[in-house]
């Protein structure tokens, strides 16, 4: 852990789990203006996301993310299953997971919190609204919140 912290040189590691390439690009763009230096990793489906988190296959050398942005509707493995797996795995459960989805359904909101999502955000469909939301995530999670300490586990 100490070694990876050094090589990461203080960069905040963010894992974005999103299958829509347009949304991926927009999110990356919005985070570029962030006040905090960060490295963004992208997983495009649920299986990929879990492999990244468990450092399997091509993800062997990947860092543990400090924050996860998770879409709900994903190919191969649904975002709800990914969330449930993260929050029931003692080595992953402390990583904050922000649900970022187009769904504004009360059922999705309630069930995400029941599965211990750290917060639920519905993606505005217009570009300006979307950028605003991504920036607010950046401000809150990367400069207001204390994230779980690295190497604490």
């Amino acid at each position: 852990m100490t070694q990876s912290q050094k090589t990461e040189s203080g960069l905040l590691q963010v894992l974005l789990v999103e299958d829509n390439p347009g949304d991926v690009r927009l999110t990356q763009e919005a985070f570029k203006d962030a006040k905090v230096q960060l490295a963004m990793h992208v997983a495009t489906d649920g299986v990929d996301a879990m492999q990244f988190l468990r450092r399997e296959g091509k993800y062997l050398d990947m860092p543990r993310p400090d924050l996860i942005l998770l879409d709900l509707n994903l190919p191969r493995k649904d975002g709800r299953d990914v969330l449930a797996e993260i929050k029931s795995d003692s080595s992953l459960m402390t990583i904050p997971v922000v649900i970022l989805t187009t769904s504004a359904s009360d059922v999705d909101i309630e069930s995400s919190y029941m599965l211990h999502a750290n917060c639920y955000i519905s993606k505005p469909v217009d570009m300006e609204g979307f950028l605003k939301v991504v920036r607010s995530i950046d401000t809150f999670w990367l400069s207001v919140v204390k994230l779980p300490p690295r190497g604490a586990l």
């Binding site: 504004a104 009360d106 909101i109 309630e110 919190y113 917060c119 639920y120 955000i121 519905s122 939301v133 607010s136 995530i137 401000t139 809150f140 400069s143 207001v144």
Partner: peptide, 16 residues
């Protein structure tokens, strides 16, 4: 103010 801006205007709450 950071909390309120985020939790009160961006985040969705359970409505149930």
């Amino acid at each position: 103010q950071g909390i309120e801006k985020y939790w009160l205007t961006v985040v969705k709450y359970p409505q149930e």
